[in-house]
Write a protein that binds this DNA or RNA. Structure first.
Lengths: 170, 170
DNA sequence: CTGCCAACGTTGGCAAGACCAACAGTTCCT
DNA sequence: AGGAACTGTTGGTCTTGCCAACGTTGGCAG
């Protein structure tokens, strides 16, 4: 009767940051496994998503949108370019910059990734019902927005045109 | 008037795993900075907490309680031993094992760490009110428990004698 | 008792992620 | 004109989560 020899100390079980780290590790595994099956990592998905939504932009902007360091953006874009999912061309208007754009293949690929990522979300949130999921996610958004402001410049946390009471689904 | 040039793509802003990773990164920074001021990392705090709550145990057990790999436990215990916060002695009853125990200094040190960690929690949860914090934490516990079961052996998720008042269900 | 398997602690390694520092080329501002 | 700020790149650090191998020890089947 003691297979349950493992049990985190109560103090940790009540510490949100510890719980978050545990859960984030699980989440990374679930998402990571799926993306790995298509040969990419999570940053590639973030980059493709930003480009798909906002259109072509410089690597620096890409980094700001995805919260990635400039140096990491360099690596990610290089890998995506190799796969033909994006193009990277010098900006004639500002010769410091590269203009990064998604290709058709990139857009299609991103759709496939999105499905896999969506699956992972369901697995992650499995124990929560609909209402709990919404409250949980809302709290996450609130906190991420709050802490992002401290470092970054933007105030995207309270963005117009996205208040959705019902938040139905698409 | 476009300092808010940064804004994660909407698809990411609605993806719990992405939000979790962002927030977990912030949390790690907040906790990490504070622990660093006392010369330790997060794992040291976890180990000390487990030993403080459950008493002396083998390194393997310590790893199970804290969700740490055996190899990482070796490193952590070595560092804690160097600082005189724990002792590590061979178990006469089972010579494969080391018995790890907290010292008096270790217990006192853990208290100081606990205060710092607690501070970090407040900073992390700042944007949430009392009720939101409880619901958020409860959801975390639920999910961590759910996903821990899949790998580990134990069923600590539904442990008796710890039902909190706010922990209602949906 | 022997032989085998499981568990333990240790070492050494890997990959990912989050960062940081420095650099040369460019642009902007004064 | 000159300095400050930005861009992309290279190369590095540190932490975390793993995994493989090894020698030692314990438990168990035969």
């Amino acid at each position: 009767m003691d297979p349950a020899d493992d049990a985190p100390p109560a103090i940790l079980r009540r510490t949100p940051s510890w719980l978050m780290n545990q859960l984030a590790a699980h989440a990374q595994r679930m998402v990571g496994e799926r993306l790995e099956s298509l040969g990419v990592r999570r940053h590639h998905y973030s980059a493709l998503s930003a480009l798909a939504e906002f259109g072509p932009m410089s690597q620096a902007d890409l980094g700001r949108h995805t919260h990635l360091d400039r140096s990491d953006v360099t690596a990610v874009t290089s890998e995506l370019e190799e796969k033909g999912l994006i193009t990277r061309t010098p900006d004639p208007a500002d010769r410091r910059r590269n203009v990064v754009s998604v290709t058709e293949d990139g857009l299609a690929f991103r759709e496939r990734l999105a499905k896999l990522v969506s699956e992972a979300q369901d697995e992650l949130l499995a124990p929560l019902n609909e209402g709990e999921r919404e409250r949980f996610t809302a709290s996450l958004v609130q906190m991420v927005g709050h802490h992002a402001k401290r470092k970054g410049s933007g105030s995207w946390a309270t963005e117009p045109g996205e208040r959705k009471p019902g938040m139905g689904k698409g």
